[in-house]
Computed example of a mutant assay.
Amino acid sequence: MQKVYKVKANDLDDRFLTELKAIFRDREIEIVVSEVDETSYLLQSPANREKLIKAVDNIKKRDNLVEFNSDDLT
């Protein structure tokens, strides 16, 4: 059996371990920890890739930018 958990490190707590123990009981398990690269994930989709590349290009060219005053956010 394989289960994948995607959590933030700060969200790990005793409940997580309790759930793992309940699911796998006395079986031997392997725990692999890897950092999630959200950029790679977003670039997997051709449509997302195109949008992100265009957005980066717009920033470099200073084209199609939206400006705002942080005071307007309050």
Rank of each mutant, 00 (worst) to 15 (best):
M1L: 11
M1T: 12
Q2T: 15
K3Q: 02
V4Q: 12
V7G: 04
K8R: 14
A9G: 07
A9L: 09
N10G: 09
N10V: 07
D13M: 04
D14I: 11
D14N: 09
R15N: 14
R15Q: 14
L17K: 09
E19A: 10
E19L: 11
E19R: 12
A22M: 12
A22W: 09
A22E: 15
A22T: 15
F24D: 03
R25Y: 10
R25L: 13
R25G: 06
R27V: 11
I29F: 05
I29P: 01
E30V: 15
E30T: 15
V32A: 07
V32L: 08
S34M: 10
S34I: 09
E35D: 13
E38N: 14
S40E: 08
L42I: 01
L42W: 02
Q44L: 08
S45M: 06
S45T: 04
P46Y: 02
P46N: 03
P46I: 02
A47M: 13
A47L: 13
N48C: 07
N48T: 03
R49V: 05
E50R: 13
K51L: 03
K54S: 08
K54G: 07
K54D: 05
A55I: 01
V56R: 11
V56H: 10
V56P: 00
N58S: 03
I59S: 05
K61D: 04
K61H: 04
K61Q: 09
R62D: 00
R62H: 00
D63T: 01
D63Y: 00
D63A: 08
D63L: 02
N64F: 02
L65R: 00
V66T: 06
F68N: 01
F68A: 00
F68D: 00
S70Y: 07
D71V: 02
D71G: 06
D72I: 00
L73A: 13
T74S: 14
T74Y: 14
